[in-house]
């Protein structure tokens, strides 16, 4: 059973932006879209392991800062290559101003 982990304060992430979240030996990103929905995905692009923390968030998508692969943050699905493999996503919720992620 996945454990809910406190990742960050909701305000730590600006609208249509992303921050890095490391837990144990794993790395993730927390994304906030244009409608204040929060998502957690694996931190590394599935194309060449570039970290997505410097990527571009547009609505609920994130674009890899190196090769412009675009992923749907809700499903992790690749919308634009060069990545071919979907990004892994994790259930995310906001409680009392904190972003919680089920890992």
């Amino acid at each position: 059973m996945a454990e809910w982990i406190d990742a960050c304060a909701a305000d730590d992430v600006e609208e249509e932006d992303v921050i890095r979240f490391d837990h144990g030996d794993r790395t993730f990103v927390i994304v906030r879209d244009h409608q204040d929905n929060y998502y957690c995905t694996d931190g590394l692009c599935t194309h060449e392991d570039v970290h997505l923390e410097n990527g571009l968030v547009v609505e609920a998508t994130i674009e890899c800062p190196k090769h412009s692969s675009i992923f749907d943050c809700a499903t992790g699905e690749v919308e634009t290559p060069p990545a071919c493999e979907n990004l892994r996503t994790y259930p995310t919720k906001v409680e009392n101003g904190r972003v919680l992620v089920a890992l």
Binding site: H47, E48, K66, H67, P81, P82
Partner: peptide, 10 residues
């Protein structure tokens, strides 16, 4: 050329 250019950037 999409992939060639991705490699050029990597």
């Amino acid at each position: 050329w999409k992939y060639s250019h991705a490699r050029h950037h990597s």
